[in-house]
């Protein structure tokens, strides 16, 4: 990995990360503020005015009353992967395919740094930035909850929830990164790198609506775990390992395809 390149990549992309952290924190803050442990019925009945299908598609479950499960359902049911997905699509495409498309990568490659080193550096940035995103979200939302509702949040369960959510988002990051390395044309990189995650998201939403469509949720990467069950103690260790496996495989595949391909620059 090249420290110089990493610093430059960070300098060019930290604002993008900051924007997503801010937006997601704003949502977290809002969701925490409308939570009322004494009167969950008022909240659920208020949301009853929306069609039930819409609520299910968004992953909202009206059976939860405790703060941890409430956050798992209302925030981690969709928002915490739908928004980061956009981040992954933008960043993944920007890190490699865009530089090949506009030819600026020729400057990186005309220095004594191998293709492998350059792609590994960009890939590490991609993964670390998702980790930073969730570390920031986790720690700040814990602070918010503790300030508003002392001792109501099950921090251990909430931590596990964040780990799994971070891993699924990192896996999606690597999907877009892989296509970014595969295609020379950022048009195609975008088509696949954005198309596949969006398809997963839509499948997860549709799968939540009815029993008939449930299989869609099962094949969508976002539907492989249930955030509410997770905070209630279901063990997702194997799934976490699977996500890590996917991340590693896609990372290696990205490096290999980039190492071998022809660059029209």
């Amino acid at each position: 990995m090249s420290i110089t390149l990493f610093k430059t990549t960070l300098k060019k992309n930290w604002i993008l990360l900051l924007i997503f952290i801010s937006v997601l924190l704003l949502y977290t803050l809002e969701m925490t503020l409308i939570y009322d442990p004494e009167n969950m019925e008022a909240l659920t009945s208020m949301l009853k005015v929306f069609p039930e299908e819409l609520m299910k598609a968004m992953g909202f479950s009206d059976l939860v009353t405790d703060l941890t499960a409430y956050l798992a359902s209302w925030l981690y049911g969709m928002l915490m992967f739908a928004f980061p997905m956009i981040y992954c699509i933008i960043l993944g495409n920007k890190l490699v395919a865009k530089t090949v498309d506009n030819g600026s990568i020729s400057y990186l490659l005309s220095t004594p740094n191998s293709r492998v080193k350059i792609i590994v550096t960009q890939g590490i940035y991609a993964i670390l930035s998702v980790a930073v995103l969730f570390t920031a979200l986790f720690s700040i939302s814990v602070l918010i909850c503790e300030a508003k509702f002392p001792d109501l949040l099950d921090i251990g369960a909430y931590f596990k929830l964040n780990v799994t959510t971070m891993l699924v988002n990192t896996a999606v990051m690597m999907v877009t990164f892989f296509f970014s390395c595969l295609f020379n044309d950022s048009k195609y990189s975008f088509l696949f790198g954005a198309g596949i995650p969006i398809m997963f998201l839509l499948m997860n939403m549709l799968g939540g609506i009815s029993k008939d469509a449930e299989f869609l949720k099962k094949i969508s990467i976002y539907g492989w775990y249930d955030p509410v069950k997770l905070v209630r103690g279901k063990d997702y260790f194997n799934l976490n390992m699977l996500f890590i496996g996917i991340i590693i495989v896609l990372f290696i595949a990205s490096v290999l395809v980039f190492k071998r391909k022809r660059l029209p620059i």
Binding site: K12, T99, G103, S104, S106, Y107, S110, T111, P112, N113
Partner: peptide, 15 residues
Amino acid sequence: QKALGYIPGEINFLD
């Protein structure tokens, strides 16, 4: 690349 200088035909610097 250690001992090479290169001017691309179409110059695009980093953004």
